[in-house]
């Protein structure tokens, strides 16, 4: 018994039509059928948030949504963030602040952060931290992710944030610290 349905879905602005097995969840469909492998699979039971994508503008665990349920929907994945070869300010800020280490939770984090900034362009650190608690990261302890989202918010508001410096200046002494 293996039932299939034909679905039409717009992912990152591109329309797709596909025949999918009804039991295939959305993350698998994105990865296998559309080769959009930026959406990663972490726990497959909705806790870790690694597979977070936007569906019709709101974030969902794509391991807990069927591909057939995305029929007619608009989906955004990490691959939809960068445009014309330019990283999204969130991606730039994650890079600058080293808001990632292994990178595996990063696509889900970026999508969640994108949703957060859509909801509130002027967030506080506390608000961002609470919003990011939606997704697990095992590497960073979250601090630099929070910093990155705040930096991106500032940039998206168009305030006077310097262009991303490729390299930070040297620390002046043999001892350095940061809060």
């Amino acid at each position: 018994m293996s039932e299939h349905r034909r679905i039409a879905v717009v992912v990152n602005g591109t329309p797709y039509e596909a025949e999918v097995e009804t039991r295939k969840y959305l993350a698998e469909f994105l990865r296998e059928d559309l080769s959009l492998v930026g959406t990663h699979i972490g726990c497959e039971h909705g806790v870790c948030g690694t597979c977070t994508v936007l569906m019709n503008g709101v974030s969902v665990r794509s391991c807990l949504v069927l591909a057939v349920q995305a029929n007619g929907a608009e989906v955004m994945t990490v691959e939809g963030l960068a445009t014309d070869g330019q990283m999204h300010p969130l991606q730039e800020a994650f890079r600058e602040k080293q808001g990632l280490q292994c990178g595996y939770c990063t696509p889900g984090m970026l999508v969640r952060a994108y949703e957060l900034l859509e909801e509130n362009p002027e967030p506080t650190a506390e608000w961002v931290r609470e919003g990011l608690a939606n997704n697990l990261c095992r590497c960073t302890g979250y601090q630099y992710i929070v910093e990155a989202v705040l930096a991106a918010a500032e940039r998206l508001r168009g305030s006077s944030v310097a262009e991303g410096q490729p390299f930070e200046p040297a620390t002046s002494s043999r001892t350095n610290q940061e809060a």
């Binding site: 990865r31 959009l36 492998v37 930026g38 959406t39 990663h40 699979i41 994945t77 990490v78 691959e79 960068a82 990283m87 991606q91 994650f94 890079r95 600058e96 080293q98 990632l100 292994c102 990178g103 595996y104 990063t106 696509p107 970026l110 490729p166 390299f167 930070e168 200046p169 040297a170 620390t171």
Partner: peptide, 23 residues
């Protein structure tokens, strides 16, 4: 050595092109 340069690994990870085994 001693500088917080941006990581070489990051752009591909941020673009969803990390090249993990399941990809």
């Amino acid at each position: 050595v001693g500088k917080s340069i941006q990581r070489i690994e990051d752009p591909r990870l941020l673009l969803g092109r990390g090249g993990y085994i399941d990809d």
